[in-house]
Simulated assay, not measured.
Amino acid sequence: MTERLLPVTTYRVTNPEGAAFNVSLRHSRERDTLDALIRGGATGCTFYDDPAPRWVSNIHKLRRRGLIIMTEREKHGGAYPGTHARYVLLSKVEKVAGVSF
Rank of each mutant, 00 (worst) to 15 (best):
P16N: 11
L5W: 04
Y48F: 15
T83I: 04
R63H: 03
W55G: 02
Y11I: 09
D32W: 04
V13D: 06
D35C: 08
T33F: 02
I38G: 02
R12Q: 15
G82H: 10
G82Q: 01
R73A: 12
M1Y: 04
N22F: 10
F101G: 12
A42R: 15
A20Y: 02
D35Q: 14
L6W: 13
P53F: 07
Y80P: 00
D50L: 07
G98F: 07
Y80E: 06
S28D: 12
G41C: 11
S28V: 04
S57P: 00
A36P: 01
P16A: 07
R63T: 01
R39H: 13
F21D: 01
W55R: 06
G98T: 05
L34N: 07
L34Y: 04
G41D: 06
G77I: 03
K61A: 15
G18Y: 04
G41A: 09
Y48G: 15
P81G: 08
R63Q: 12
G78Q: 07
F47G: 07
R4C: 11
L6G: 10
D50Q: 15
V93L: 06
T43D: 11
C45S: 03
T46F: 03
T33D: 03
L34Q: 03
R86Y: 04
F21S: 02
Y48R: 14
E72T: 09
T33W: 01
L5D: 10
S91K: 11
E94D: 15
V93P: 00
A97E: 14
H84Y: 11
Y48W: 12
I68H: 08
G40R: 06
H76Q: 13
Y11D: 05
A19N: 13
G40Y: 10
T71H: 09
A42I: 04
P81W: 07
S100Y: 11
A20T: 15
P81V: 03
G82S: 09
Y11K: 07
P81S: 03
A85Y: 12
R65N: 01
H27P: 00
L62C: 02
A52C: 08
G78I: 07
A79I: 09
H27R: 14
I69D: 05
T14S: 04
S100C: 03
T9L: 13
G18P: 10
G40V: 04
E94K: 13
T14V: 13
P7T: 05
S57E: 13
G98E: 11
R39N: 08
L37G: 10
W55Q: 01
T46Y: 03
L37I: 05
T83C: 08
R26Y: 01
H27A: 10
R26D: 05
G66A: 04
T33V: 02
K61G: 00
R86G: 08
T9I: 06
N15R: 12
K61D: 11
T14P: 06
E74Y: 03
T9N: 06
A42T: 13
P53D: 12
V88C: 01
L25G: 10
A97I: 02
M1W: 10
S24T: 14
R29F: 02
